[in-house]
Nucleic acid binder design. Structure first.
Lengths: 230, 230
DNA sequence: AAGTGGTCTAGACCACGTC
DNA sequence: ACGTGGTCTAGACCACTTT
């Protein structure tokens, strides 16, 4: 019996049994104490290995019932949504942006619904992001000014609203969604594509303690691809 | 000084300092021992709190240098990609599917490149998935038959290839990507939409120990939206 | 060489959910 | 009531990286 098993070795050993079919989906596996004995390590170590597997959706754990291999595994992909500038520069292209509209006004219903801020005047900013001089993404953003001190004087010709907000305004949570849509006339003009061309849309709202900070819609030109590991 | 602080309380306290600006992006924060003293708990507990923050990209840690608040926070969203049937049924719709093509042949270059299986004959399956009788998603899949024993006799009129594979064939890793595209004639016919309509595409390849198992392209009709928390 | 995070251990108590 | 996971502790040693 080996000593000083790392939680990673234990996790690997457990994974092997699952992948080999020794433990099949829906099956209950031995308890922590038993596994600790078998692997010759402390229960703490087994616990950590199992906890990580549970976080990855490989197993399900419940007190008193025990641990079982997830019956219907749900694939999970962790997407990293970088700052636009980094996204462009990491591909070796030159990044530029241009603020095409900046106004303070009441937001339309679709936006107030998402942000749950009725009848407030919000800062509305539209930004075109360019990669090597070519239109890359169009950003339509609404900002809750009360929660973002200093935004009035932010130098948006030097730093994009995207980047400024990420650096200056912390958020606690939010939601994000992805879908496909076709370009209307306005977007087509900005992005220099044909009307009706397919766009990849990301909508995102961020909040700080349940108060909406900003909500935005990003329209990516065709050719954009978001990739991740499973 | 309180005793028995849970790692969650500690994590919440640390987050509060970061969100309040007391610790700003790029700033190094006290070491584990110091924090343990301050919070009146063991270093193990502080370690776990900080480890989780690091996993979420809130802080960066390096031995000897210490821990600092991530200078340029990268938003992370964990997407859950469910089985199509569940996806449809969870919305309260009735699910059906229909296999429209099943053949064994050499895959085109684009597929062999993704799967890194040259000159092998692969199983090619096309499935149309329906929600309440209306076309919902078209799936174009290639399967490495050698790695999926039993697939020849799988009852694909009862269970979709998607679901069969998830249940029967484990995978260790894979990659996934998302983009927008417009419907060609064939897809438009299957999905009963106009040619050129925007589609949400998911491409996915899964592997077991670096051997490709299956690679597929899923085309969702307009209206599909993928949502997640930040 | 030294400081910081990374991990392991043995034992303990607690909390939840099933029986 | 009881069994299982969830967590905490105190101390120890290790590994990496910078000085």
């Amino acid at each position: 019996m080996r000593q000083t098993q790392s939680h990673q070795s234990v996790q690997a050993a457990l994974l092997k049994r699952i992948h080999s079919g020794e433990w099949s989906p829906g099956m209950f596996i031995p308890g922590e104490v038993e596994l600790a004995l078998e692997f010759g390590c402390s229960r703490t170590t087994v616990n950590r290995a199992l906890r990580q597997l549970a976080e990855n959706g490989i197993v399900e754990r419940k007190r008193k019932r025990g641990t079982r291999v997830t019956p219907m595994p749900v694939a999970r992909a962790t997407l990293e949504i970088p700052i636009i500038r980094k996204e462009v520069e990491d591909r070796g292209s030159e990044y530029r942006h241009s603020v095409v509209l900046k106004e303070i006004k009441k937001a339309p219903a679709s936006v107030t619904a998402r942000m749950q801020l009725k009848d407030k005047k919000l800062l509305h900013i539209q930004t075109l992001h360019l990669s090597d001089g070519a239109p890359y993404m169009f950003e339509d953003r609404w900002v809750n000014v009360e929660e973002t001190p200093g935004i009035e004087n932010a130098p948006f010709d030097e730093i994009s609203p995207n980047e400024w907000l990420v650096q200056e305004v912390p958020y606690s949570d939010g939601d994000i969604s992805f879908y496909a849509s076709s370009a209307n006339k306005e977007l087509a003009d900005f992005l220099e594509i044909k009307e009706g061309a397919p766009l990849f849309i990301i909508e995102r709202t961020t909040r700080m303690n349940d108060v909406a900070i900003t909500s935005l819609k990003m329209a990516y030109t065709e050719g954009f691809k978001m990739t991740s590991k499973l």
